[in-house]
Design a protein around this nucleic acid. Structure first.
Length: 104
DNA sequence: AAAATGACGGTGT
DNA sequence: TACACCGCCATTT
């Protein structure tokens, strides 16, 4: 596994409960601002699902674009809600629940 | 080595 | 709000 991919997973594990990160945000923190698309692939082929909270990753506008788990996007939304993430209709309230770090 | 593939991000209409 | 495109990138064929 490449270093970049490794970093993305480490970052994902740092997302606190009740917060979410965007694909582009993880790409940036991992050192590749424009690799958001690739990050999506990393989440999809997430090797250790329980250990790495890939459900806390959504697209830049707060929409849930996918989830390879059993219940798909629906389950993903419920997981987030049960963790305290706030929603505005079918999208996440990023203003309230976006994960903010010192770096960026 | 070249082409195809997405859980993206952004712009235009 | 909803599409259609386009540029990007790591991986896989």
């Amino acid at each position: 596994m490449s270093d970049f991919r490794q970093r993305v997973y480490e970052l994902t594990r740092q997302i606190p409960e009740g917060k979410v990160a965007t694909y582009g945000q993880l790409a940036k923190l991992a050192g590749r601002v424009k690799a958001a698309r690739a990050v999506g692939v990393f989440m999809r082929t997430n090797p250790d699902a329980p250990h790495t909270p890939c459900h806390r990753v959504v697209s830049f506008n707060g929409k849930l674009t996918g989830y390879s788990g059993r219940g798909g996007i629906l389950q993903k939304r419920e997981m987030l809600i049960s963790e305290g993430v706030k929603f505005l209709g079918d999208r996440v309230n990023l203003q309230e629940s976006l994960w903010v770090t010192q770096q960026q």
